[in-house]
Amino acid sequence: MLSGPFLKLVFSPFREFLSAWKLVQLEANVRYKKTNLGIVWYLLAFVFKVAVLGGVYTKALGKPPAEYLPYLVLGVSLWGFVSGSIQYGCVALINNEKFIYFDNARLFFFVFKGVMREFLFASLLMSWSLFLTCVLTDVAVVSLLLFMLGMALVFVAVYLVACILAFICLVRADVTHFISSMMNVFFIATPIIWDSSDAPGLQKLMVYNPFYYLIEVMRSPVLGRELPPTLYVFFIVLIPVLLLLLWGCSKLVRKGFASYV
């Protein structure tokens, strides 16, 4: 089932990390071509969002800004990566149809490329968020290492989810819209703007929210918070399950790709 060649195919884009990074940089230039500020617009959009959310919620939740702002900026920047990658996954194969015709051995690379693009933008925000957090709070070196570990786990998990959705959305276009709606719902339902300690009644429900783990595995170490005991267990279970699902989904469409696009 999960044979060596299949795993090799799924993870082969990771060996091309540097060229994928260069490629998404080149492609990202198109988005901000002819603007004076270039990619700074992306940072500004984030700053505006965080400024408004921070202003409103520090008042509404009565939180000290020095404690709440690092929580908020890390949460929003991580959510941008997770949500952007998952939504890109829904259109990855459809948008890259002609590239896939040209070389179908690189099917997974075209999903990887989109996840890398989201990672490129998110890494700008994350480095800015980390800088702000380091200025406002004390961050230990070990916390940064755990952050990196969390980032690697989230990257792999999000890439696999994007691959699965790429196949499913190719067959069922409705899923793209469903996922888009659900991402809006989960932005509210996941402790990104609000803290789970603000709503003790909801803490038990968080166990069932996969996005909670994806965010907290990176955010909690940096903020010096105790990591939920189930956090790494979640990833140990999640990644093999995602691989199995991906294997099943890829079997569904690989032979009849042209019928679906």
Binding site: L23, F99, F109, K113
Partner: peptide, 23 residues
């Protein structure tokens, strides 16, 4: 395939190359 009119010839060729080659 994948050509972007606003980018230079060099960048377009790089994009085409990197989409299909890892080096």
């Amino acid at each position: 395939l994948g050509l972007k009119p606003s980018l230079s010839l060099y960048d377009n060729a790089m994009i085409r190359y990197l989409n299909f080659n890892s080096s």
